[in-house]
Amino acid sequence: MAVVSTKAIVFNTIKYSDSSLIVKCYTLEDGLKSYLVRGVLKSKKGGIKVGYFQPLTQLNLVANHSEKRSLHNIKEVHIANPYKTIYQDIVKQSIVMFLAEVLTHAIKEEEPNKHLFSFLETAFSWLDIHDKVSNFHLLFLLNLTQFLGFYPDLSEKEKLGFDLMEGNFTDDTSQKNIIYKNDFYQFKKLLGINFDSIENVSFSKQERQQVLKIIVRYFELHLDGFKTPKSLQILEAVFS
Rank of each mutant, 00 (worst) to 15 (best):
F147V: 09
T145V: 05
T170M: 07
F98H: 10
Q146D: 05
Y151C: 06
S118K: 15
H72R: 07
L99Y: 02
F117N: 04
D183K: 15
D172L: 07
G161V: 04
F124Q: 08
E156Y: 07
V50G: 06
A123P: 10
D172H: 02
V62T: 13
I86T: 11
D172S: 05
N135L: 13
T104Q: 12
F119G: 02
G47K: 11
E67A: 11
W126A: 01
A80P: 00
N81M: 04
W126Q: 03
L154H: 01
L190C: 09
L142S: 09
V62R: 13
H130W: 03
H72C: 11
D171K: 06
D128H: 06
P55L: 01
L154T: 13
A63W: 06
I48N: 05
H78V: 11
P152N: 05
N73V: 12
K181N: 14
L127W: 01
K84T: 11
K188F: 01
L59M: 10
L139D: 03
L99R: 03
G149R: 04
L127T: 02
I74Q: 10
S134Q: 14
N135Q: 11
L103F: 06
K132P: 00
D183V: 01
Q54K: 13
V91R: 09
F98T: 04
D153Y: 11
Q93E: 09
F187E: 02
K44C: 07
S66L: 12
F117V: 11
K68M: 10
T170H: 09
G51R: 10
D89R: 03
K45S: 15
L160P: 00
Q58Y: 07
K176Q: 14
A80L: 15
A63V: 04
E166P: 00
H137I: 10
V133M: 08
F119L: 12
S134L: 07
Y52D: 02
T122P: 00
N73K: 14
L144P: 03
L141V: 04
T85W: 04
A123W: 10
P55C: 06
Q58H: 14
G161T: 05
L190K: 05
V50D: 00
K108W: 12
I95Q: 11
N168K: 15
K188Q: 12
I107V: 15
I107M: 02
E109Q: 15
K92N: 04
E121I: 00
I90Y: 07
S134P: 00
L139P: 04
L116R: 02
E109K: 15
M97A: 14
N135K: 09
S125A: 14
V96L: 07
V62A: 05
L190P: 03
E111P: 00
D163T: 06
Q93W: 02
N143Q: 14
S94T: 15
K188R: 15
Y52N: 11
G167E: 07
G47I: 10
N182S: 15
H130I: 08
T85D: 12
L142I: 12
K68F: 12
W126S: 05
K75R: 15
F184V: 10
I107H: 05
I90K: 07
L61T: 05
E110W: 00
N113A: 08
P112T: 06
F147A: 07
S94M: 08
V50T: 14
